[in-house]
Design a protein around this nucleic acid. Sequence first.
DNA 1: ATTAGCACTCTATCTAAATGAGTGCTAATG
DNA 2: CATTAGCACTCATTTAGATAGAGTGCTAAT
Lengths: 350, 350
Amino acid sequence: MPLSDFDQRRNNILRLIVEAYVATAAPVGSEFIARKLRPAVSSATIRNVMSELEAMGYVEQPHTSAGRVPTERGYRFYVDAVMDQRRLPSDQLQQLAVAIEPGELDVAQLLERAGIALAELTQLGVFVVAPTVRHSKVRQIELVPLSVRKLLCVLIANEELIASHVVELEQPLSREEASALARFLNEELGGQPFEGLIDSLQRRLLAESDSFYYMVKRSLDILQHALSTEPSERLLWEGTSYLVAQPEFAGHPRRTHDLLRGLDTQAPLVERLRQDLAGRGVHVRIGHEIALPHLEACSYVTASFGIGPAAIGGIGVLGPTRMDYPQVRATVEATARCVTELLTRWEQGW
Amino acid sequence: MPLSDFDQRRNNILRLIVEAYVATAAPVGSEFIARKLRPAVSSATIRNVMSELEAMGYVEQPHTSAGRVPTERGYRFYVDAVMDQRRLPSDQLQQLAVAIEPGELDVAQLLERAGIALAELTQLGVFVVAPTVRHSKVRQIELVPLSVRKLLCVLIANEELIASHVVELEQPLSREEASALARFLNEELGGQPFEGLIDSLQRRLLAESDSFYYMVKRSLDILQHALSTEPSERLLWEGTSYLVAQPEFAGHPRRTHDLLRGLDTQAPLVERLRQDLAGRGVHVRIGHEIALPHLEACSYVTASFGIGPAAIGGIGVLGPTRMDYPQVRATVEATARCVTELLTRWEQGW
DNA sequence: ATTAGCACTCTATCTAAATGAGTGCTAATG
DNA sequence: CATTAGCACTCATTTAGATAGAGTGCTAAT
């Protein structure tokens, strides 16, 4: 359904309000819009449209004689239907590529760099949900005896993910036993997802009373210890200082404190992010849509990255609700694409 | 040299000023001190002593008709000569032990927990300088072939420190070669500090043209790659939100921003901390003594922890210059001791 | 439907005065 | 001679009132 001329103009005015407010953080008056809008109309007309927008719940007034400020619904509509999809300027794309490129071979470091670059570009907070072995599949498992009762269990997953854990053994394990066990593990478990490993071994332990019983039992002991301390996601943060410099927080110690507290205790946020990152593509959550009490004054834009089509992690920008959505969106998307490209090229090098 | 009665009283008044200011963050007047000081004297006498303290540079007035505020010199004198060494109340010690104890076998996690507990107890910022393999000695090196041209190099150091790096090989390495190389590495390098490993191998490469040349050359390639991305220290942060809630920062967005920026870019701070942590014992740095422009409004209290007598890392509290030094000192010291005890007991389990 | 004009509202800013906490000085005291 | 009561003085903070100005909503004209 095409937009009527009126709707067209209404949307344009909403766009101007949002963009002016994003730029200045001050309520936007009709006079200001009248000077910008093409085709030009008088400020009185703008006022009429503005009260229409207010009736629709897209803007509101801090007080009777102030200009308009976008509501969360307003931002939502702006993001969904009004803003134009910007592409990242090529110089910034360049900057991004340079910042990430320097080819040290470590996913975690690559992601950290990407995060820093993204924070730099957007001047906002950045989080990276980094993949860990847990959500991936067994490529190889190595058991390195450290002493008779201690073992280093090295879990190697696809996507260059590695975790190692020291496991304290209840019964001593000889060097030969260890390598036999490792061989067993790799033959039996190779390619299986780490996530279900314990369950599947436990089932097998019950079902089977065969010659492998001992092997399964010992594997279970070791992997249970090793996986119990292995997080399913790691969250990186960058650019906190940019974030608190935003006017939304600068003058509001309480809000700043809330924000940082929300960042200190990451668990609920990770949970929320996981949902958004499940599908590929860019997601925008605005204000209360985040549904975390500490982050009500914020919005975020996320994109997942991966290897080829499979998503293995995500990166996003957290800022005040009043943020430059077109720019942030473009930058987040470009960063995620950049990371995906690098990881994919890399994976092919295996 | 014993203190004269006058010096005694002067110091007591300084103590009261510091402690009142720490508690309230407001300048301290003579009347207030007069009510607290025993043996009691009039506020006029206090005023005389106060101007004496001011002449000595221990306190100052924000403006002519305000009470006194301790200067950095004042805090320094207080910490060195006036404050009494408090011991941590046993319930808090208990809380600390419980928070750290839960026996998962991972130095990094232990330290993170200790950091969180310390931040909780002091309601201030906490940093932990965590040890990494680099500053320790070779216990074992394992080479796990991932493909013909990729190798996982696992560095195991004393103190349960482990690092693993994927190394891309220029020339293929067979499984047998890899295990031969690992054997060679362990025989030749075991017990040596990781720090000087590259140098010593390089020297050996020049000196020696014997049958080991090939082995040394390949080891060098691998270790160079593996160690180049290995940091010499890892810095953990906790409790940022407590810190910015302090009145020093709450109303001062610029200072808050500076602080967070100082925490974002850690390198200079780590350098400074390294010096303080070299010797065991507790160190206090006050304001400009930190000599980092972003942290001028702060002080910190550090203590090193280790295994037995050897220091391997440090933990500390960062707060506003106006902090409760006796309490923070006691808490930091107790935490460091707790960690040391745990690590030592643990190490003996090897 | 649009717009010029205008009365109205409400915040932000400014000024002036009152308040009060705290000092330094002086003279009296044991 | 250290101590103290008394007092004038200073200066940040608070309070109140007046002013300015930005922006609106409404009305009547086009």
